[in-house]
């Protein structure tokens, strides 16, 4: 474990907590893409499927973190699609999730480290996570604005994989560990946040709200 991966995981946890708090406190999921949250839930379930196969005692933090990610993302989807369904902005959350899931699944069958079920599920999860934020960014571009709390959520969510890139550089240099598929997908994922990061740094940090040119 290195500092980059530690802060990456903490940033990821923070993102999940910020979103849950926003929805729970405001009792509304306005401005939140339910599809992105569904895709994240699918990512966690397919990536941590080993938790369900051979259940190992929760002796280490990694198992606990995996369970937190899965339960928090499923609970977030429950809040969006059931509890606060009335506030779900379905009209603007209109990016076709199939256009992300099918290519990720196809690519996972073509480019993977080993052609076996668990490995392909893991690879699918990595590819899907890289593009899972697109419906959320699409929704913001449609509504033309993002609530400040949602911007903080996106910043934490984007920073997590950016920090993982530093972690991969660290591990390559000190442990000569390379996981090419995760690295390429992680770089693509972080690049998708670039324009949002620019808006966040230039606006939200100064207390302004992100309003996209309509």
């Amino acid at each position: 474990m290195n500092i980059f991966r530690l802060f990456g995981d903490l940033s990821h946890l923070a993102a999940i907590a910020i979103l849950l708090l926003k929805i729970w406190k405001t009792r509304s999921c306005a401005g939140v893409s339910g599809k992105t949250q569904l895709l994240f839930a699918v990512c966690f379930i397919t990536r941590y499927i080993d938790l369900f196969l051979h259940f190992v005692s929760l002796y280490n933090t990694e198992k606990v973190m995996k369970l937190i990610y899965i339960s928090a993302s499923v609970f977030t989807c429950y809040l969006i699609f059931f509890k606060f369904k009335a506030t779900y902005d379905g009209n603007h959350d209109s990016m076709r999730a199939e256009f992300l899931i099918v290519p990720a699944a196809g690519l996972a069958c073509l480019i993977n480290t080993k052609f076996d079920a668990i490995e392909i599920l893991w690879t699918f999860s990595i590819y899907l996570e890289a593009v899972a934020i697109l419906p959320q960014l699409f929704l913001i571009s449609k509504t033309g604005e993002a609530e400040t709390i949602t911007s903080h959520y996106l910043f934490a969510q984007g920073s997590y994989r950016a920090l993982y890139i530093l972690n991969w550089i660290y591990r390559y240099h000190y442990e000569s560990h390379v996981d090419t598929i995760a690295i390429v997908a992680g770089v693509v994922q972080t690049i998708l946040y670039c324009d949002f990061f620019y808006l966040y740094i230039t606006k939200v940090v100064k207390g302004q709200k992100i309003v996209l040119p309509a």
Binding site: D9, E62, K66, Y69, T113, K114, N167, D179, A182
Partner: peptide, 10 residues
Amino acid sequence: YGCDLVHDEL
């Protein structure tokens, strides 16, 4: 062998 492919990251 078999599970040598360990993805040790979250």
